[in-house]
Design a binder for these strands. Structure first.
Lengths: 143, 143
DNA sequence: TTTTAATCAGATAAAAATATCTGATTATAT
DNA sequence: ATATAATCAGATATTTTTATCTGATTAAAA
């Protein structure tokens, strides 16, 4: 079982938070991210590539190349990463796995789950990642 | 990506809710459950077997055999199914996938996620499945 | 007593998620 | 110029989850 998000998505969020905690414009290599966050090198590489394709981060090749955020951290939210990797489908599918769960055909816990889902969405949407910089740094220090 | 629970667990919850919506003591075959809930026959079979091993449901073999709840629906909660199939690990692991996320080493969204996790747990813990009978029946009618 | 319809146990298969490998390309630094 | 250190693209491998198969056992019904 996953805790809501796939490993890819979890790693992607961690990496984006890490990039956001760097000095603006700093290029960070996949190797570096892999070591700091303890994520398999080749795996985070692939994830970074796909985030680049989505336009969330940018990269430069060659020696001393690496990755950096494509825009200011004050304009990026965690939901952007989720959207790019896992997609937003989970925010309108049934927690019990029933098909077409809706107000007209609610599952047994539909009314309770609705607000929770909304709050989860809000958690990912309300804050931009620049606001999470300090917390990110102190978490990384403890890894 | 899953929506919190594995398919096994979703199907397990659906099946247990369905059993709870039957007349007390009714034996329901895996075939029947499979058809009503549109779950692959052999797959739900395995899930029912494992729920039997966990003691949540009981079975009788032979012609006109089948499955029924092992105790009164007023004493079963959805968390029992989750606990038996997916385990409760998700309720204390990090939503961003960081290891050892805790109040002393919180991840960037630790404080926001905590209450949400608790509410999710409450959703599965507060109501016994007999309370969900009517809603289950009306959902099943729409499948 | 035989047929039938069910669970049960264990093996296997298929699909998806996670992870790694290989070699090409690129750009900096020596 | 050349060596080095990085991304990139595509293939491959491994692991986990989801799903199916096979045959044995059981018990009710014919």
């Amino acid at each position: 079982m996953t805790v809501i998000f796939s490993k890819k998505c979890e790693y992607g969020m961690q990496a984006v938070l890490y990039l956001a905690s760097q000095e603006k414009g700093t290029l960070v290599s996949a190797e570096d991210i892999s070591k700091v966050l303890k994520i398999p090198r080749e795996f985070i590489s692939k994830i970074l590539q796909s985030l680049r394709e989505s336009g969330l981060i940018s990269s430069s090749k060659g020696k001393s190349g690496g990755f950096t955020l494509a825009k200011d951290p004050s304009r990026i939210k965690l939901i952007d990463v989720v959207s790019a990797i896992d997609g937003l489908e989970m925010f309108d599918s049934c927690v019990l796995g029933f098909p077409e769960c809706s107000p007209t055909h609610p599952c047994p816990v539909h009314n309770i789950w609705g607000p929770l889902r909304t709050q989860t969405y809000d958690m990912l949407t309300s804050e931009t990642i620049d606001k999470l910089k300090e917390k990110t740094l102190s978490k990384i220090r403890s890894l």
